[in-house]
Amino acid sequence: MAVPQQYEFFIDPNRCIGCQSCVQACGECDTHKGHPMIHLEYVDRPFSVQTAPVVCMHCESPTCAEVCPADAIKKTEDGVVQTARKPRCIGCSNCVLSCPFGVPKMKTELELMMKCDMCYDRTSVGKKPMCATVCPSQALFFGTREEIERLRPRSVPTNRFQFGRQTITTKVNMMVPSFSENMVVDVTAAMNEPPVDQSFDMEALAVSDFEF
């Protein structure tokens, strides 16, 4: 069984409304029962309500797998980077600290790394991952390229990310503006930039401005 080639994962953090549906649904997946693998991050909590879902991007050359001393992380032929194989994982956290997207989770009590495997029990039989099934704003979308092009005429998918001098290509796509000249998401360029331009200014809601 493998993930059908015509189906792809598209993420668009800008559309996230922070409803937590993906987190709850993720924990229902049979491959990691009871353990949500998706991250729902507040991008800049003191100043913004913006949230962003982060799933495994399934890198073509997965750093997590390469730095694993136990050779516990395997990529299947369909390009899905599987979670750590339980008999092999020695719980060292190399993958957790090396993943450029910050995805793997270390379960200390289990001496085991767990991460998003794109709900492989579902996607390998043609179903959608749990998170994409429930996401009301379609920040997480699983479908064909034709579908996403029809739904998002102002965006285009890209799967290239820049981390310092390292370019990482992934199986999962991120939606970027169609007017983008450079189709590479430069992650390190955003290192010191607060997300003020895209966010709602929380200071406007300071307690002193209101009479409760």
């Binding site: 991050e41 962003a52 997207f101 970027v176 607060p194």
Partner: peptide, 12 residues
């Protein structure tokens, strides 16, 4: 790293 990914997309 996870936050920066969202910010980087927003910047675009």
């Amino acid at each position: 790293r996870r936050r920066m990914l969202a910010i980087a997309q927003g910047r675009m």
